[in-house]
Design a protein around this nucleic acid. Structure first.
Lengths: 253, 253
DNA sequence: CCTTGAATATCGGTG
DNA sequence: CACCGATGTTCAAGG
């Protein structure tokens, strides 16, 4: 790991050339300093002088972070090529990307810190709380949606797309269930409507029920469901980690 | 700016306590090191050992970046509170947030670099190339959609929502135009369909045309449009900056 | 405060 | 490579 604290622009260029440009795919580079940013590609933007953190990642991603906000104020996608040069006492970082054709230029007036490091991270994140978990919950216990419900098929393909869950209620009426992991939206209503229509047409059924299941369903969406004779059920899913995952977490306690 | 290169965890804790914890809203803090990350809140995740960059921003945002990918692998939103302590030779960063109730814990085994800085950035970004620009392009030159088209109203409110552009073709048939800045999706088709229906009902019109305009329209969407007797036109918009913006950019040339 | 819609969305899975 | 759907989406605007 190489650290340059308050370097001159010449020191900066030299450090970057020696340590980064030879193996950019194995070298993480960071620059903190006072800069302007100019971008044009899918859109176009210009950002005037300010103190920022620039991350140049090993996959070619380049992020320009301000001292606030979760999102980078400017960036270039993975696969970008980054080049460095000096012009009129300014240190210039040029980032180019092809398909989509984009260019970002960062102009430094003052550089506070340059960090060059070879970082290794092979860990894969283990995450749960997704739509599949809600689907799993319903399959394991259909009565959480409605007493007497039986699930026949998940991911049933119809004309308009893929039905999350398909089955029959206690009176043998076909039931189409659309599952949303987080808040249900109006789009989900349209999807469900199409699926119900598809099933009606495909099976020559007169009565097919449609139920939207989500942890939360806003009033607006409920009204829309009512308008189309669809139903809804708020279904919560336990956030439970797999056993081996629990074990690892136990180390923290 | 305070830089700690390869500090012991005790030095790290002391530096953080002195420089960051007193005024976290004015102090940017960064830690590069070997860590695990545990999160639970809206979902739950665990990330095993690896080298990462942690940014603790002045608005409470905390980002955990791996050496690759544009997105942080873990994060906490603005308004989070970050606390530090040592436990069994590990340096632990606890980030908590209320509403939504969330917690993230970063456990460091090894710390390579700590940077504490007071960064100032008051610049606002100047950006263009959004949906409004496509709308503007069509208003200024309706023939880019179709010869003889006249736009009567933009942002026309109907039952199902807001119509981007409304007008008449050369035969005085009403035309509803839905504009998408980037790739058109199936949702846009549903929107357009509803709008056309609303106009038909509202005006007692037999014939109302619906046109979807976007820089790119995928095949699937085209087929769906066909099914519903809707039309489409790929419309590109020039990305042109305002005059004063151009002037500023001229400084770079 | 909640809700809605856009984003230089990004990212992963699939054909 | 193109396309599609999900995201702990985030973010800003409007009611």
């Amino acid at each position: 790991m190489k650290i340059l604290s308050h370097p001159t622009i010449e020191e900066c260029l030299e450090g970057v050339k020696i340590h980064h440009q030879k193996k950019p795919e194995k070298t993480f580079l960071q620059i903190i300093g006072h800069c302007q940013v100019d971008y044009h590609g899918r859109a176009r933007s210009f950002l005037d002088w300010g103190d920022r953190i620039i991350l140049i990642k090993q996959d070619g991603n380049v992020l320009v972070h301000q001292p606030i906000m979760r999102e980078p104020i400017n960036w270039q996608p993975a696969g970008s090529k980054t080049q460095f040069h000096i012009k009129k006492d300014l240190f210039i970082v040029s980032v180019t990307h092809k398909k989509p054709d984009e260019k970002m230029k960062i102009i430094f007036k003052k550089i506070d810190l340059v960090t060059i490091a070879s970082l290794s991270d092979t860990a894969k994140i283990n995450i749960c709380g997704m739509e599949t978990d809600v689907v799993k919950t319903i399959i394991e216990n259909p009565s959480c949606v409605e007493e007497g419900l039986r699930i026949q098929k998940c991911e049933k393909q119809v004309k308009s797309g893929m039905i999350d869950l398909y089955g029959f209620d206690k009176d043998f009426t076909p039931v189409v269930i659309e599952v949303k992991r987080s808040q249900a939206t109006i789009n989900a209503v349209h999807q469900l409507r199409m699926y119900v229509k598809d099933i009606k047409q495909g099976n020559n059924e007169v009565k097919v029920r449609g139920i939207l299941c989500a942890p939360h369903i806003p009033d607006m969406v409920r009204h829309l469901l009512n308008d189309y004779d669809l139903e809804w059920m708020e279904v919560d899913h336990e956030i439970v980690l797999p056993d081996d995952f629990q074990k690892t977490l136990a180390d923290f306690k």
